[in-house]
Simulated scan of single mutants.
Amino acid sequence: MSARDFKPETWTSTANEALKISIVGENAIQFPPLFTYPIYGESEKIYGYKDLVIHLAFDSIAFKPYVNVKYSAKLEDNDVINVEEKLLSFLPKNDVIVKDEAKWVDSFMEEQKNHSLPDGFKTISEYSLGGEEFVVYKANLIDNYARMMHHRVQIFSLLFIEAANYIDEDDSNWDIFWLLNKKTKQLIGFVTTYKYWHYLGAKPFDENTDKKFRAKISQFLVFPPYQNKGHGSCFYDAIVQFWLKDESITEITVEDPNEAFDDLRDRNDLQRLRKMGFDATLRKHSELPDEFLESSRKSFKLEERQFKRLLEMLLLLNHSPSFELEVKKRLFIKNYDALSGIDPEEAKQALQNSFLLVRDDYSRILDSLNISEA
């Protein structure tokens, strides 16, 4: 052993670098995770191995998982975790091929040979992108095939969505939307969604009318090899259009969106409202009565926060004199406790600073759509 072997860094690996994820189709595409803390701890460090490499691979259609952990040396220490066992605990039991690559290839090739989606997968939309055709399906987790597929892909939620957790698959309110290449059958991404019962008041409840629901997007993921190609917008729009046609859905929500998804959502929602004529309708109103805004929000099935953001963006786009008033009114209400506790002039300046930040952010989103302020 050399002196270097006694240095802690020799035996410490960064989990995000050690874990190599691959999706194998005609070619194998390898990429790193964004997060490994749900599996290997908050520090995302792995101690006790030299030259550690963790291979986690899936075929591009059935997503049959394969694991192969390699290293040149391992410390004999009780504090050293079993890297392979730790990863396997997050993958479907008895459905993972470990180390035997030939067995894994034979296994997924056999699955692909007989690959067909069961009746529980309902087509909700199709779209063209880059000269190829794609299909969006919806399936409930009561479907055995949907549950098996979700077992295989759910680890991607932990690896690519911050603070994600595995969902309760025994709750029948969970639906999964699946995005596939129509010709190759390759799985492009998936979205977990949930329906909450929406209480609309005593009268509808007493009259036992049809139940109404809020629909929530929980985990939205396009696999890394297919990102930055336009699939996210097409996938999101397909789901929203499906819910807009569903009379049982009253409101569409998103669970803890990150900044990237917020941007995707804003762009697509904004374009949809303009196509539906809301932009033109706003130009006809010199004032914005609460009744008009609330009826508009409900017709678009938007939650209040998202509707107000879109309304403000459209007011900015139209150079409406109501823009600054609407933004500052919302900011004042949101920050009332903090603003009321400081000097009025300081509060006024703080409100102005916040307004300018909001305006600049809205301009950034409008610019990304090549929409100039009218």
Results as ranks from 00 to 15, higher is better:
residue 231 H to Q: 06
residue 19 L to M: 07
residue 84 E to H: 01
residue 296 S to Q: 11
residue 79 D to M: 12
residue 247 E to F: 02
residue 138 K to A: 13
residue 217 I to G: 09
residue 15 A to M: 07
residue 137 Y to S: 04
residue 369 L to V: 04
residue 18 A to K: 00
residue 57 A to N: 14
residue 75 L to T: 02
residue 114 N to G: 00
residue 158 L to I: 02
residue 270 L to G: 01
residue 238 A to V: 01
residue 88 L to Q: 08
residue 251 E to K: 10
residue 59 D to L: 10
residue 327 V to E: 01
residue 281 T to V: 09
residue 349 Q to E: 14
residue 288 L to V: 14
residue 266 D to P: 01
residue 284 K to N: 15
residue 152 R to W: 03
residue 94 N to G: 06
residue 337 D to H: 09
residue 144 N to W: 01
residue 89 S to G: 01
residue 5 D to A: 04
residue 182 K to A: 15
residue 8 P to D: 06
residue 129 L to V: 08
residue 18 A to Q: 05
residue 210 D to R: 10
residue 212 K to H: 07
residue 371 I to C: 07
residue 209 T to E: 14
residue 240 V to R: 11
residue 273 L to W: 09
residue 368 S to C: 00
residue 308 K to R: 09
residue 63 F to L: 11
residue 299 S to F: 11
residue 159 L to M: 12
residue 262 D to S: 14
residue 98 V to E: 08
residue 363 S to G: 00
residue 63 F to C: 03
residue 19 L to K: 01
residue 290 D to P: 00
residue 16 N to F: 00
residue 222 V to A: 09
residue 75 L to N: 04
residue 209 T to Q: 11
residue 184 T to R: 10
residue 21 I to R: 04
residue 127 Y to W: 06
residue 325 L to Y: 13
residue 225 P to M: 12
residue 214 R to E: 05
residue 185 K to D: 07
residue 151 H to T: 07
residue 12 T to Q: 11
residue 371 I to S: 02
residue 127 Y to C: 06
residue 119 D to G: 02
residue 281 T to I: 12
residue 364 R to D: 06
residue 267 R to G: 05
residue 196 Y to S: 10
